[in-house]
């Protein structure tokens, strides 16, 4: 039997390569979703991971760090938040 492919449609899924927690501790929305201000997940609303290994939506964490009461600390462990450099 000979098969001729007329057309094919590729389908793919994605998720962040970070499964430690499934939701952002600040907004409680899935990492694969968006922070409350964003519309599109993925590169438009990336994750940020600290040296302490705690991850958040970047926008959520940046908003927290701009508040005075955050004192620059990770909302999970209260260690100084520094972005992990791989």
């Amino acid at each position: 039997m000979k098969v001729t492919i007329d057309k094919w449609i590729g389908v793919s899924t994605w998720h962040w390569n970070h499964a430690q927690d499934e939701v952002c501790g600040i907004c409680r929305v899935a990492f694969d979703g968006t922070c409350p201000t964003c519309k599109y997940p993925g590169d438009d609303c990336p994750l940020i991971i600290g040296e302490c290994k705690h991850a958040f939506h970047m926008h959520c964490l940046l908003k927290w760090l701009t508040t005075e009461s955050s004192k620059g600390l990770c909302p999970m462990c209260r260690r100084r938040f520094k972005t992990a450099t791989e």
Binding site: G25, I26, R28, W64, S69, P75, R78
Partner: peptide, 9 residues
């Protein structure tokens, strides 16, 4: 107060 953090519910 001082120990509030957004991961608290």
């Amino acid at each position: 107060r001082e120990d509030w953090k957004p991961v608290l519910n």
